[in-house]
Design a protein around this nucleic acid. Sequence first.
DNA 1: TCTGTATATATAGATCACATGAGTATGCGA
DNA 2: TCGCATACTCATGTGATCTATATATACAGA
Lengths: 119, 119
Amino acid sequence: MQEPTFLILTALAARPQHGYGIIADVAEISSGKVRLRAGTLYAALDRLSGEGLIETEREEIVDGRARRYYRLTANGATRLSAEAQRLRNHAETAFARLSIPPGTAFSPFPLPLSPREAW
Amino acid sequence: MQEPTFLILTALAARPQHGYGIIADVAEISSGKVRLRAGTLYAALDRLSGEGLIETEREEIVDGRARRYYRLTANGATRLSAEAQRLRNHAETAFARLSIPPGTAFSPFPLPLSPREAW
DNA sequence: TCTGTATATATAGATCACATGAGTATGCGA
DNA sequence: TCGCATACTCATGTGATCTATATATACAGA
């Protein structure tokens, strides 16, 4: 799962939202760093609906414009939780490895990773 | 940056490694969940070299087979650190939002996210 | 009034990371 | 001899994302 998709699910984890609201929420979540394009969003919404991770909650007409609200399904919440755990693990692993002091990357004391170290 | 790329940089954060070693290390890091294909790996190595995030350290001939060792550059370490922070933030945000008790997704007490809540 | 910006959704086409699958080659254990 | 592990290369396909555009309303400012 890529970043835009993850952030769309995260946006919907808080509450049901319509497309344009998701774009704003994702910008909010990512401190303005991820600005979803309409094309990305609506394609993702179709795909995620097809996968059963989100579903249409209701439709409204506001100022003559249709608003379609989506919400996270139970499957979607499970999936998002699994992905979040995955990201957290990856991030922690990267930090642990980056904390190796510079200059010791060629250390004669290799990290105890696996028997494959012997390669 | 996608998951395979992130994991390749993480593998190289520990120490210089050659292609096949990276494949094994990434499988290790991800508890066997990510199994890089040769095609994915070598394309990524070319791309990352071009971006200056990694570089060739040395080449060896072992049992008649060439082994090319890659290492993370200073730019690569900076980039990996930034990406790891990004993943950590995304993961924590998702967990925070998922922790909203089921059934309160339509709560009359919306999360204090932004003035855009008013939409 | 004209222009730009914000709201709101939709779609066609391009890009590019990644996946798939095959090829090339050596060494080793069953 | 067969299969597996090691080790790299390349051709082709897939699919999520990006770019750009279209449609439509409302409102602020020049």
